[in-house]
Nucleic acid binder design. Structure first.
Lengths: 213, 213
DNA sequence: TATTGTGAAGCCTTTCACAGCA
DNA sequence: TGCTGTGAAAGGCTTCACAATA
């Protein structure tokens, strides 16, 4: 297929296909059709094929896709065929939950640093939960440590009032990717990427749907 | 404006407008134009006006919108003008972080029950964090307690392998809204609503953008 | 024969541009 | 005058339908 701009929705779906394919691979399934994958991910089969078409041809006509190969191709496309080094900023309840989030390990995401405005306060909380505790450092050390430890993604888990200023610190430290868990939208300059998780918006959405349908 | 189907994207944006308006209201700002609100929420001004137009006319030509009134209207539209009673299922690190998540209080969301497959294991973890601890109950009591406490939204904070079966339990208990934090898509029958938070997909998205731009 | 890859149609969302109005 | 409300245009994404082919 000819080259063109790739829809953001396609990238989001690739991530979902990847998860499904991992499950299939674990179950030793070897081949999958676009229709099967589509059902599993609740999308249209043509959509699945078109999503892949942005990046090349991965299937065999009359057969389908080889699970292992397709999974590897998708991971390569998403940039998941290598380790990503991350830092958590804000080691409150949410931050410490993220520090011990087991799913990161399987997915090549690695938390290599943790920061807080009061590191002494939270040390117990972290070490009690982790087999191999990550030392909690003062945020003032963010810039230096980010360089040292080659941090590429910063996870903001502070209260909303501090989210933007932490984002600014991350930008200053040249941490190019930011995942924000605070219930507020953050802004970053060109060359940087920020994603807001905004799960409270998902709750608002539920409230709306429950009220109106 | 004539009645028509409301885009899901509009509902998501209403939730963002609501947050921005709350901030403005706290700063005692009384009037806001669609252009100002648009800038603050990183959208187009015509988009803001069109979003509102689905539900009626809220502004004054030549002036703008009264912050307080608009905020109340949006909250009413979203169904946020009343309390929502929620339960958390799975009191691991993430679950207990949610139990003490302060932002819920401000937003009329109230956690009135917590469940786990091993309630005794997690009691310490919860009570240590909450001023007024929510007792952790065994999941087998979900159906009865959901009725008793009028639970309308269930928050799944279990490992991914158990997410769908917990969703099934919630459906059986007639808890109509589900917010799923496990990194897997869950399915529910008609009449029920489920939203997956999938923050690992947001990370994948970051990885993609950092790799390709 | 079964399923992929894809041009074209259809649908939905966003943006423009300006009439309408306080 | 300045900003809202909205019809129409533009743009983008999804789905259809079928040619291509292992």
């Amino acid at each position: 297929m000819k080259y063109s701009k790739i829809p953001e929705a396609t990238i989001r779906r690739l991530s979902r296909y990847s998860r499904c394919l991992e499950e299939m691979d674990e179950k030793r399934e070897e081949v999958v059709s676009s229709a099967q994958l589509a059902t599993k991910c609740s999308v249209n089969a043509a959509q699945v094929r078109k999503d892949f078409a942005y990046f090349g041809e991965f299937g065999i006509r009359g057969v389908g896709y080889y699970v292992k190969d397709l999974l590897q191709d998708i991971k390569r496309i998403l940039g998941l065929n290598r380790e990503w080094r991350m830092a958590v900023i804000g080691v409150g309840n949410l931050g410490s939950a993220l520090l011990s989030y087991k799913d990161f390990l399987k997915q090549n995401y690695k938390i290599v640093a943790a920061f807080d405005i009061n590191p002494l306060m939270v040390i117990g909380r972290v070490s009690e939960k982790l087999g191999k505790p990550v030392e909690v450092l003062h945020v003032s050390r963010l810039k230096d440590v980010a360089k040292e430890r080659k941090i590429e993604i910063g996870i903001i888990a502070t209260p909303p009032s501090q989210a933007q200023s932490v984002a600014d610190l991350l930008v200053e430290a040249e941490v190019r990717g930011i995942l924000n868990f605070a219930p507020t939208q953050i802004k970053v300059p060109k060359g940087y990427v920020a994603k807001d998780v905004l799960f409270t918006n998902a709750l608002d959405n539920l409230a709306y749907l429950l009220t109106n349908y």
